[in-house]
Design a protein around this nucleic acid. Structure first.
Lengths: 351, 351
DNA sequence: GAGAATCGTGACATCGTTGTCAAACGCCGG
DNA sequence: CCGGCGTTTGACAACGATGTCACGATTCTC
């Protein structure tokens, strides 16, 4: 259907992209000379440089990076693979942005993909990255083991895990101080007189979520609160499910006086539920991870904020350091969280 | 520093990635046979397939997509370049997500980059994409002309512009119904008795912003409102600048009774300013483009919502259609907007 | 049972580029 | 005027894969 077209017209016909050979022919030089000019190698006469540059411009020539890579000594594709949790979460957006900023500075392009809580997409994306010969990987994971990466890591490909720690392999990991952040939230609510604090958590199969729960429960334990009396609801991974779960909890015979929501979207679902029962001014709420416009709500939402920019930046730094020869053992890099007080967490326990 | 290392140890030494040749050697077959097995070509005996598969697994072999592409007939890299406006804007995130979803379905990987309002990054990113031989481009633009893409488009590379129309080239374009959306907002406020409606707009050099202003002013004109009496403030591209601008306007001798904020972040800045003057219950506000948590604010924020998912999806559809042979002339695809009523836009004019 | 068609396989050229190497040229000193 | 040296240049192999083709071994056909 493409081919019948406009017979005899000026032929917009799909010409293919120009190659060095064509540039060389037009400039009347050898192809290696074109290569030299394009790559700024020395020992080319000024006149030749001009001829080649003109020819390249005339043909709108763009060198084929991959073909070059095939032969080039360092074998670097100047490409990175980034897998984030979910594009719908602002946390991921911020990480992406930070990684890209660092990458662009080095002339590295970023393949970005998102997991969307689908374990099969993890391995699939990584494989896609690897077949495209990325120089390094920055990964948020969800599948139970990252053992499938062992050989690749052994071969020297830098892999940095963000937001979640890997299992089955050792590598650089950049995470928020999840347990400590959760503990911070708990202390804050305890200080406001709460003893019956509900835990609303993300999927239990996410290691990060388990860390937050651990921090939460341990801090309650340290304060002498019997954890058996603490409502713990997990596997909440969106607003709607959280909404329903918290409504149920609030209707129970011994409802909590405070709520700790251990994730972004869970926090939003919790806010909606508290509003639906008109309890947003009487039940305290502290969320983990910041929420957009949290300060404009009534009351403002108190959160333990993460620092996604720093996480992305640090991850990129680690990848590039290893590409530059750093071969220290993989380590955990912990990015601190901080409590942002806005109102919802400072509601005192009644009685 | 890398090289002195652990003399005589088990040598974790950076082995390079395995090639087909190595797989072939291990399996005891020719390299072309490995190629056949990897690509699922017919006419290989079951026994050979098994031997090759085992060898590939043993070496953790991943085919080099780019090397293959060099020789492959269709010359497709199964790669797309996506340039969005700003990762910090949820609109961009949604577009990205939609594009990626469509891409992954076809086994295509996405290079994602963001413009962040820097014209020099536009051409730089496109060039980076092209050198990596992407099959198609989906671009949000900011520089005054996209003429630099003319040769590439003529060569048959599918280019789709999103959110902003290009100048200097003809190609598929996917945009919101900007003028009509703005007009919709105006009609809504007129219906609530407002005549003095302020326009708060994004950068005047962005074509999309100009469209929204046009829609705004034309609708006022149709309603017989003298546009000379309408405060129009432009070049607001973040919350802080908008905040200051609106505060100034509200302090003027004849302040507006309603505000139309023509962009996401501008809307948020406007909300903050209205709150700072405690006018959020008396001055009407309608924003263009939805804002996260808009329904939880007090009052809820009435907006003309765009449909970024649809925009991204449609853009991807166009790219793939052209890759599949569609050679109809480039066209504008307009995605409708819709008014979401939440409270702030239904405040009536006083008197 | 002979010839034809099909199957399974590998040698080789090739994709667009860069690394290696050697040739051609100009310049200098003796 | 010659030898040596540095500069400029291009021929050629190679990177890791696939397309083409030809070869030997089966299987089919009548």
């Amino acid at each position: 259907m493409t081919s019948l077209s406009n017979a005899g017209a000026e032929a917009p016909a799909t010409t293919s992209r120009p190659t060095m050979k064509q540039v060389a022919a037009l400039a009347g030089v050898g192809i290696k000379t074109v290569s030299r000019v394009i790559n700024g190698e020395p020992n080319v006469s000024a006149a030749t440089i001009a001829r080649v540059t003109d020819a390249a411009r005339a043909l709108d020539y763009q060198p084929d990076l991959h073909a070059g890579n095939l032969r080039r000594a360092d074998g670097r594709s100047r490409t990175l693979g980034l897998l984030v949790g979910s594009v719908s979460n602002p946390f991921s957006g911020a990480v992406h942005r930070a990684v890209e900023e660092a990458a662009i500075e080095r002339g590295v392009a970023v393949f970005a993909s998102s997991l969307d809580d689908d374990p099969s997409r993890e391995e699939q994306s990584v494989s896609a990255f690897l077949r495209r010969r990325v120089d390094g990987l920055i990964l948020t994971t969800i599948s139970p083991s990252q053992g499938y990466l062992a050989a690749e890591i052994r071969r020297g490909t830098p892999v940095v895990f963000v937001d979640r720690e890997p299992s089955g392999v050792t590598a650089d990991t950049v995470v928020s101080d999840n347990a400590a952040g959760a503990a911070l939230a708990v202390r804050h609510m305890l200080a406001h007189g709460h003893r019956r604090i509900a835990y609303l958590g993300d999927r239990g199969d996410i290691q990060t979520a388990r860390e937050r729960r651990r921090g939460f429960l341990e801090e309650l334990g340290r304060a002498g609160v019997a954890t058996s009396s603490v409502p713990v609801i997990e596997n909440l991974h969106d607003e709607a499910v959280t909404f329903d779960a918290l409504l149920g909890l609030l209707s129970s015979e011994d409802p909590p006086t405070a709520v700790f929501s251990a994730q972004n979207l869970v926090t939003i679902g919790a806010i909606r539920a508290l509003r639906a029962r008109d309890l947003h001014h009487s039940v305290a709420l502290v969320g983990f991870d910041d929420v957009p416009l949290a300060d404009l709500l009534e009351p403002g939402v108190t959160v333990v904020a993460q620092n996604p920019q720093r996480i992305g930046q640090l991850a990129a730094e680690r990848v590039f350091a290893r590409l530059d020869g750093d071969d220290t053992p993989g380590a955990r890099h912990i990015v601190p969280t901080r409590l942002i007080v806005r109102g919802s967490g400072e509601i005192n326990a009644i009685g």
